[in-house]
Design a binder for these strands. Structure first.
Lengths: 170, 170
DNA sequence: TTGGAGTGTCAACAAGGCTGACGTAAACTT
DNA sequence: AAGTTTACGTCAGCCTTGTTGACACTCCAA
């Protein structure tokens, strides 16, 4: 049978575009894709005493070295107790260094140690390999669309965090 | 300053396209977007005695009525103990009906009750509202790209589940 | 009839969220 | 100078949702 369901709608079909079915497929795509997205680093982490939360902390500390605890809290969207539990083990294990702020001594500035960078690299490489393959298969235009939709899906505060990260490290 | 970093790469730039920075932004976009994606239903569920796991079960039962426990297990990718805990409460609360199979009486076929459909609708509507807005803002081409990349990001088995769901309910 | 598949369930545990409360030091305000 | 707010750490306890392991039951198929 001729299958027109999954084809790209032409301009004139915009009124019909956002059917419930399309949206439901979008939801499911997000669900399955996110599982794929986290699968590889999760496998690596399973062997260690770490979890996805550690990966996230390592990622964003590596991304914005010297960031404060409060900043990281906002980015991750968790409570300080939750973050602290993760951060404590990372510091204790020598993956993250926590330095008292120079100007404001209440703040702690977080950085990856050599060891922390190594693990972060290992995890990110696994994740990026999948993303790279997906991006390559899909092509530049698809990737642009992918990013556009994801950005439109974020809460405003998240979108701020997202763009702020791009500004500081282009 | 003129900012060319976030523009869509032209055809000729394909070699430069998959920089680590691009991939990292892709990761972060997935992270932030997924938070947005689950935020609305999570808020609704927080008031009830249910969580995200219940939402997922309701969604896929509603999507494929009569599905078996094992089938659902494969789709959700959790252990049967984990699923059973969720399913038990849903059945006990009258949101899901579990019928012994006609041909194979070992199997249980799952369906939403009227009440279950109501909650599933409430949750999905919240989630879809955001998705609809994002799709509308991004436009059809971006949505097509979004889907293409997400599909390429799935594990093969997940991709099978994903497409199988589309086949049965067009 | 026997093996194995599909299902339900008990127990125990871990990760990683959460709230509430409290403490300390530094910075800010009045 | 005194009081308030901010940044951070930490203890205690709770919840959801994932995990393993073990066991029982039903029933299909060889």
């Amino acid at each position: 049978m001729a299958d027109t369901r999954h084809s790209i709608p032409a301009r004139g079909e915009n009124l019909l575009f956002l059917t419930d079915e399309q949206l439901r497929q979008g939801s499911e795509a997000m669900f399955f894709a996110y599982r794929g997205f986290t699968a590889d680093p999760d496998r690596i982490l399973a062997d260690m005493a770490y979890g996805r939360a550690h990966h996230r902390a390592l990622h964003f500390i590596g991304r914005a070295p010297g960031t404060t605890v409060n900043n990281l809290l906002n980015i991750l969207g968790v409570t300080k107790q939750s973050l602290n539990r993760v951060l404590r083990t990372l510091v204790a294990d020598g993956l993250v260094e926590s330095k008292v702020g120079r100007n404001d001594k209440r703040e702690r500035h977080l950085e990856l140690t050599e060891q922390g960078r190594a693990l972060e690299q290992q995890l990110s490489n696994a994740q990026r390999a999948r993303l790279r393959a997906a991006f390559r298969d899909a092509g530049p235009e698809a990737v642009a669309g992918f990013r556009t939709v994801l950005e439109a899906m974020m809460d405003p505060e998240m979108h701020q965090s997202y763009t702020r990260l791009r500004e500081t490290s282009p």
